[in-house]
Amino acid sequence: MREFGYRRADDVTGAVALLDADPGARYLGGGTNLVDLMKTGVERPARLVDIRRLPLDGIELTDDGGLRIGATVTNSDLAAHPEVRRRCPALSQAVLAGASGQLRNMATVGGNLLQRTRCGYFADVTKPCNKREPGSGCPAIEGEHRNHAILGASEHCVAVHPSDMAVALSAFDAVVSYQTADGPGELPLADLYLPVSDTPHRETALPRGALITAVTLPAAPVAARSRYRKVRERASYAFAIGSVAAALEVHDGVVRDVRLAFGAVASRPWRAHAAERALVGSPADAEHFAAAADAELAAARPLPDNAYKVTLMRNLVVAVLTDLAQEAAR
């Protein structure tokens, strides 16, 4: 780890100004990902601007009944918040499914969105990686890729985004607010993550120096009946190999509204629009849930060792939607 300067920011304007002034500076939130990457040499900032104590740690109800979540709210506080649990249980469940109690106490909402992939090649500076070192190659495609992307990847990178929280947020059309030296801005979460294409090192559409200040979840009654299911290679304290955030509204056996997003299948949380379109207006049964999953997964381009994810995601969609349909019927 190289030596670095450290400043604790007093307010958002000051934080943004500090970063603007120093191209080698990075924001430090909970540090759970950044400090690790600094130890492994993946990140080598010259200065850290500590934003952890900025007054961005509130969760408020918006006028329309949505939720506005401050960027420095910890994962723990987000998951435990009664309004989050009431209005969007899938978000609470997603956060609780991630990392460990200790890490959730440290990690912030803003940092969670911007965490880097856990691809083993990315994390190892002795290996090629187009995301870390553009043009050096992607060894995962011919090498170890059991937990890599099946959707939206490219020949340049097949890494997956590791966040659970972002999967739930993406299912409910979250909007990211940020601040730069030029003023505030907003981005739908759907547009936050850039397509992989031939620039896997360019991960988000945030302007340089932008500080995420909040994430807003618009009101969505369907979110009150939502669920997050995560499959991993041990029962806890592990990243997903596949996950689903889902919400379902059924009337007279017919799907009225549905939200579906997948985790651990792409470089970003994967909103399953095709599946949603296929489902609205169709019977709420396993056969149609499976057909909807197939509609989404038709675009999957698995590698030899991660083809199981196609089956896994299909089965997960059926299982989670079936559970939600049964719950709605009760």
Partner: peptide, 13 residues
Amino acid sequence: GRRTLACLQLAVA
């Protein structure tokens, strides 16, 4: 009062 991983917590912070 909250459990934290000291290995990822910079002392200065």
